[in-house]
Simulated scan of single mutants.
Amino acid sequence: MTDSAASIDTTRFIECNGGAYPVRIEYQWLNPERVDAPIALFLHEGLGSIALWKGWPQQLCDRLNCRGLVYSRPGYGRSTPRRSGERWPVEFLHRQAQEVLPAFLDALGVDAEERSHMWLIGHSDGGTIALLYASAFPEALAGLAVMAPHLFVEPMTVEGIEKARSTYETTSFRDKLQAYHDDVDSAFYGWNDAWLNPAFLQWDITEELSSIRRPLLAIQGYDDEYASMLQIDKIKAAVDHAQLVKLTQCRHSPHRDATDEVNDAIAAFVRAHRG
């Protein structure tokens, strides 16, 4: 067993308030022996889970000398799936940031002092959740790094999500995704139906970001198939102290498409702002 593998805790489950109803959340600590180290909390993409992150959170936590906290949001991975017939509302990302995440941290006993030193690392929908959390609780984190976050809906976003639906329903993509979720349809259609809701076209969180006080790093690839560089440009316009990293030959998953560049950027960012 490698040192890295030895520092990964077993997957655990905890009950907490999921907003509309109680849920069981799958979570995992990385480097749990570093009890005095700050927490790096990872927020996965719209079809993600603990398993879909693969080894990247561990790699980054080792680089940052942090404890890691990874979890699957309700509806994903081995966490409580959506209830039959449930459709997530337009504000589902707000609920994850302002209700589910704080309830999850409460259930784990992560107190206000630990939260004030906590770094959020979010990808795609997880990046949006990180931004919404930082705007709602501006003192309850040390800083955040977001990759390919969504602030508003672009035509290319809708086109990409429509294409994902067709791929899911006509190819082997569903079978591949099933390896990462106990209820793969819960994960896919929860995300897909919410983003393709016509009411979602008016969704825009840009104005909410002005309350973010902590250090903020935003990373985007020029070849992102779901959104343009305007997403992080608007972050900079709303949060003057935000730092931007724009990557060439990078699509919607910077931590997979440009791993070294992303790790270097996040490590330098955290190092510069860590008290």
Score class of each variant (00 low, 15 high):
R12H: 10
I14L: 08
E15D: 12
G18M: 06
G18R: 04
A20D: 13
E26H: 07
E26L: 12
W29D: 07
E33C: 03
D36L: 06
D36F: 00
I39D: 03
L47C: 11
S49F: 09
L52Y: 07
Q58M: 12
Q59S: 12
C61F: 05
L64T: 08
N65T: 15
C66M: 13
C66F: 15
V70T: 05
Y71K: 01
R73T: 08
P74G: 02
Y76K: 00
R78C: 02
W88T: 04
H94Y: 04
H94C: 03
A97R: 05
P102T: 08
A103N: 15
A103W: 06
F104V: 09
F104N: 11
D106V: 11
L108S: 14
G109S: 13
G122Y: 08
H123N: 13
S124F: 12
D125C: 06
G126R: 05
G127A: 04
T128V: 03
Y133L: 01
F137Y: 09
A142V: 01
G143N: 06
A145R: 07
A145K: 08
V146G: 13
M147G: 11
M147A: 14
A148N: 12
P149T: 11
L151S: 13
M156T: 15
M156I: 15
T157P: 00
G160F: 01
I161W: 14
R165E: 09
T167E: 11
Y168W: 15
T171Y: 03
S172D: 15
F173Q: 13
F173W: 14
R174W: 02
D175P: 10
D175A: 15
D182Q: 15
D183E: 14
D185H: 07
F188A: 00
Y189A: 02
G190D: 04
D193K: 06
D193T: 10
W195L: 10
W195V: 01
N197D: 14
P198E: 02
A199R: 08
W203M: 03
W203K: 04
E207A: 14
E208F: 09
L209S: 08
S210N: 09
S210P: 00
R213W: 06
R213A: 14
R214H: 05
R214N: 10
R214L: 04
L216Q: 10
I219W: 06
I219F: 07
D223W: 00
D224E: 08
E225N: 13
E225G: 04
E225I: 09
Y226S: 04
L230Q: 14
Q231P: 03
Q231F: 09
D233L: 09
D233V: 03
K234S: 13
I235F: 06
V239Y: 02
A242F: 03
T248H: 11
R251Y: 12
R251C: 10
A258F: 01
T259Y: 10
D260Q: 12
E261Y: 01
D264L: 15
H273C: 03
G275P: 14
